[in-house]
Design a protein around this nucleic acid. Structure first.
Lengths: 221, 221
DNA sequence: TTTCGTATAATTGTATGCAATTATACAAGC
DNA sequence: GCTTGTATAATTGCATACAATTATACGAAA
């Protein structure tokens, strides 16, 4: 889940705050005081400030000059917007994978689908969530476009909280894994048109399923 | 062009460095020393560091821990990728504008097209570039989606340098403004399907024109 | 009681000092 | 000549001190 273990304090603070915001551990619009955070985390204000400025740039906190930093959480509307953006972009990503995916990523993708089918049969929700996340990550890493992969990875992380609750539904899980298999096979066969179409639809299917399962409710707490 | 005039030093440093990177004033992979920058800008290292960390998050500089910050410029490949992503996203944006654009933005958009037609007839390249940028910005501000507008605005700024050279071509300018007029009228008539299709094609047309005018050469210097 | 003004406290913004890490120079050994 | 080891210099990472700005408390006047 976490990529390279951070070496710097400011990096660690950044990822911790980001996780806490994306997972909903902070209330929306909650004030983030530099002093409070630095005491809680046992560091000075400097790395906290650097982390807050980065989160501000990303839009996850609002920085009001000389006043403070306030949580800007992902809303249900954001999730809807993200899925509508992801749909064509994941299609584009799948298309590009047909040209650029390296052998080892292709093999990891196949393995991922096999494993997911196994865990779905056993009803292992947690493993399914991780495998699903990794399936998309493999695509992002294999499309040979830093702009596309960065954008899609950010979006994927932003909707992680909303996705969490969908893996309890075995029906959707099975359908989702079936779609992964189709996408994987289209990429393996280098059928760019098919891969694009399948990936585009896969994202919309996931979103429609999420709506049926009560997206709004997930963001009420 | 610049939004709110920065009050803080770190904000000013950030925007200055970002501009310098996006406009190509720094060589790619050039090292950005904190001390050097702070002396050049007449500030301490603290705001410089904050700006560099933000640019690092954005991907415009690569931060190597304990080593340094290195320019990560936009390449010709990035520009191609961005246009392919922008195409469906601007389509989505235009579609949403049909539902959400407020009256004053609609009026500004109409005025923008009228003005552009005027300046095109006179051959005023600089004004055309600004009006073109503003046309798209109005769309981004009117789609009622912070995710979409932020993404598209970033992309638009990233390709600014590549776009600069296209406004010397009066032929493409006229075609582009004609496309703007069509998009504007589709939005005014609330024809979402048409607006989406026109905006999608508009971006691809702009990109193909850019290719013909030698995109690669613009990034050789 | 409410409103305004002022003094005080709290918080952010920036500069600077020091520790930790990395780069550089240069000499010894092969 | 080339590599390697070591001392020195340069640079980044973090903590802290101080300045600037904003929030709060409290009393005076209406």
């Amino acid at each position: 889940m976490s990529d390279t273990k951070d070496v710097s304090l400011s990096g660690r603070v950044f990822h911790k705050l980001r996780d806490d915001i994306l997972s909903g551990r902070y209330k929306n619009h909650e004030e983030l005081r530099e002093m409070t955070l630095s005491e809680e985390l046992g560091v000075s204000r400097t790395p906290v400030r650097e982390a807050l400025r980065q989160l501000g740039l990303e839009g996850l906190v609002e920085i009001i000059p000389n006043k403070g930093a306030y949580v800007n959480a992902i809303t249900a509307e954001d999730v809807e917007d993200i899925y509508r953006m992801r749909s064509p972009l994941e299609g584009l990503c799948a298309r590009r994978c047909c040209s650029f995916i390296p052998l080892e990523k292709m093999e990891e993708m196949e393995e991922n689908v096999y494993l997911a089918e196994f865990h779905a049969a056993k009803g292992h929700g947690e493993q399914l969530a991780q495998l699903d996340h990794r399936f998309h990550e493999i695509m992002y890493e294999s499309c040979n476009s830093r702009m596309l992969s960065r954008t899609l990875l950010d979006f994927h992380e932003y909707v992680m909280r909303a996705r969490k609750r969908t893996f309890t539904e075995p029906e959707r899980s099975l359908k989702s894994i079936g779609e992964h298999r189709q996408i994987m096979e289209a990429i393996r066969e280098r059928d760019a048109d098919l891969a694009e179409q399948l990936a585009t639809r896969h994202v919309m299917n996931a979103y429609e399923n999420m709506l049926r399962n009560g997206l709004k409710e997930a963001y009420q707490e």
